[in-house]
């Protein structure tokens, strides 16, 4: 079996960032009332008792709150990043130190480490996997197919991942049941439109500090993300030209 050389319980940047990370996790949790309701129910009913769950998600303070909900439900967790640059290193520190969630993610990790981290999660032999972009599921199918029989299902967070999974289904290459979280109305109507719309502008503004007023802002793609972004960037009154 192909494995990784990672230490079994975690690989994060700096555990001394845990205090700041914990505050961030608590801050995000204040605005996640639905997840908190589920966490309470899960703590009582333990629907995931003893289930090994491997997650490959953007390791942010919001994701940390999902981990706490799953943990409350009794799951044995392992978490890695679904993008080499999206990890919040203070959050990973707190997940390991304060909440004992095995976490493998470092912001800025190279491609090799990125895949070592994915493999470290798969080394825990997950029965449920959670993806944001279908990297874990495709690694399972391509390089660790012997583990597929123990997977009872995998959920997928994003449009790109669902497209990949539907292509696998079409090709009859898909060997496990998957759940397209992205296709829920309560996901893409809100997360993709309002979430991506606002946070994309936030990223551009933090990186550049440019003034958007008066600029010509080109949005390539008018799916849910594009709609949200275009409507947030726009002029108060619409302006259309036939230049170009």
């Amino acid at each position: 079996m192909k494995g990784s050389s990672m230490p079994r319980n975690h690989d994060v940047k700096d555990l001394s960032l845990a205090k700041q990370g914990k505050l961030k996790i608590e801050w995000a949790g204040r605005n996640m009332p639905v997840l908190k309701l589920l966490e309470k129910r899960f703590a009582k009913e333990k629907p995931l008792k003893g289930i090994r769950l491997g997650a490959c998600l953007h390791v942010t303070s919001e994701t940390a709150n999902l981990m706490l909900t799953l943990k409350a439900g009794g799951a044995d967790l392992a978490l890695c990043a679904s993008n080499p640059l999206s990890t919040q290193d203070d959050v990973t520190a707190s997940l390991v130190k304060d909440f004992t969630v095995p976490t493998f993610a470092i912001k800025g990790e190279n491609k090799k480490t990125y895949y070592e981290h994915l493999n470290a999660v798969l080394d825990t032999n997950p029965e449920i996997t959670m993806d944001d972009g279908a990297d874990l599921v495709s690694l399972l199918h391509k390089e660790r197919p012997q583990q597929l029989s123990q997977v009872i299902g995998s959920s997928e967070e994003t449009t790109t991942g669902v497209i990949r999974l539907k292509a696998m289904e079409q090709d009859k290459a898909l060997k496990i049941p998957v759940f397209a979280v992205n296709d829920s109305a309560t996901k893409h109507f809100f997360d993709n439109r309002y979430g991506t719309g606002q946070s994309t502008l936030d990223g551009i503004l933090r990186a550049t500090n440019v003034l958007l007023a008066g600029k010509t802002f080109v949005v390539c793609g008018y799916g849910w993300c594009g709609r949200g972004l275009a409507s947030r960037a726009r002029h108060g009154s619409a302006r259309r030209c036939n230049r170009g």
């Binding site: 009332p33 995931l48 953007h58 309560t186 809100f190 990223g203």
Partner: peptide, 26 residues
């Protein structure tokens, strides 16, 4: 993805529903 690279990704209010879906999927 610039929203996660240079900022903090989606705000908690929307991830609340996305992740409720994830937890229910499990």
């Amino acid at each position: 993805l610039i929203n996660l690279v240079a900022a903090e990704g989606h705000p908690a209010e929307v991830m609340d529903m996305s992740f409720a879906n994830q937890a229910l999927a499990a």
